[in-house]
Design a protein around this nucleic acid. Structure first.
Lengths: 207, 207
DNA sequence: CACCTAATAGTCAGATCTGAATAATCAGAG
DNA sequence: CTCTGATTATTCAGATCTGACTATTAGGTG
């Protein structure tokens, strides 16, 4: 389903969204993304933007609106949303909001392979992680507070609230994990210690 | 930092990890990944595997060990970890465990753009999401239980525990969000309703 | 024993992404 | 008034990824 979309890059969704307001040229789209803070939620890359707009145009979701220049600035091409584009926008949002998709965060990968390091080392690294997470947390709460103070409605900060919630969960999980590793009472701490040097035992998998 | 690595694909990390045990050929690596359940944590693609092994070889992290055949099966090339590869493995794991990196989950993107849909629609979609999340939750708990019953040590299931924690947080967040949307008492519900038709107001950003 | 399905092993064209480069203009320092 | 650095606007080569394709063999079924 997800891969059946002619444009899969989420940057494309943002483009459709902004163009649903008014026609714009790629560079202006990039500016909006940065100003609105949506670049924090959607991976933004100057090059990719032009790429994605091109893809959207090929798929018929956007069309060249006019090509001109403003003042003495370089020439630019303004794109506008098509009807197909408007449909794609709502359909895409429906999919993303309605059905969770399996994802692959880097930390999950690291957790699944961490047995390759000795336990004490992992515990130390996780402690470093905790301080870095505290920094991230401060950044987000700061952003939320200053935004609220500037009168930005809460509606435009939900993604940060979500991130904050996930962050707190990660902190709690990491603390528990460190405790499990350092506490010699748990069963797998000794298993791990015994195992080391042979990181992956031939354990029969579930199925 | 992260982008300075000659091989950035996390599949490469898994390859280094498995090869730290014993030399293997790409197809066998893929089998391990699936059997160990690590394919749930690391995006796995048949084609990418050969790609990544090639990249690792070019970077000097793995080297051709021998090339032969087993039984009447097609010929295959076995790769082994080099010293540089072993260093890269530990360094990479250190980075991933020690420092969180900013990521871009699809749901975050959707949240930041959901204002483009009318609030009632979003609430309905989020309710769908909740049932799907319950399904995912059941899948994970099932996997953890059967694995534990089969004697797989907890150490090899932490990534699922992490996912579970994040999932629960997402459920709680989604429930709260639905409540905020449907409750007419919140400030931004009416803001949203009033705003619709003009999805993105010209709100002055924080900085 | 003929047939079908699944597993084994790998290749490759085409799509996509990234980061760097280009080039012009504006705003402010000195 | 000229130099510097930031902003505007876009392009593109090279790296990377994906999904589909080839080809062989093992194992089971009727």
């Amino acid at each position: 389903m997800a891969s059946k979309r002619p444009v899969s890059n989420l940057l494309g969704l943002a483009v459709l969204c902004y163009l649903s307001e008014q026609p714009l040229h790629p560079y202006a789209l990039g500016r909006m993304l940065r100003q609105h803070g949506d670049a924090r939620s959607i991976k933004f890359n100057h090059g990719s933007l032009y790429m994605v707009v091109q893809q959207l145009a090929r798929a018929g979701f956007v069309a060249e609106h006019e090509t001109g220049r403003e003042g003495a600035r370089p020439e630019h091409t303004v794109y506008a949303l098509t009807d197909a584009g408007r449909l794609e926008l709502t359909d895409w949002l429906h999919e993303l909001l309605g059905q969770p998709r399996h994802e692959y965060p880097a930390f999950v990968a690291a957790l699944s392979l961490m047995a390759a390091l000795p336990p004490a080392e992992v515990a130390g690294l996780l402690r470093n992680r905790l301080t870095a997470l505290a920094g991230q947390r401060a950044e987000i709460t700061g952003l939320i507070e200053t935004s609220a103070a500037n009168g930005v409605p809460g509606l435009f900060l939900i993604e940060e609230e979500y991130r904050l919630a996930q962050l707190d969960t990660e902190v709690a999980f990491t603390e528990r994990l460190i405790a499990s590793i350092t506490d010699p009472g748990t069963d797998w701490a000794l298993f791990w210690a015994g195992q080391h040097g042979v990181p992956f035992p031939a354990v029969a998998p579930a199925e």
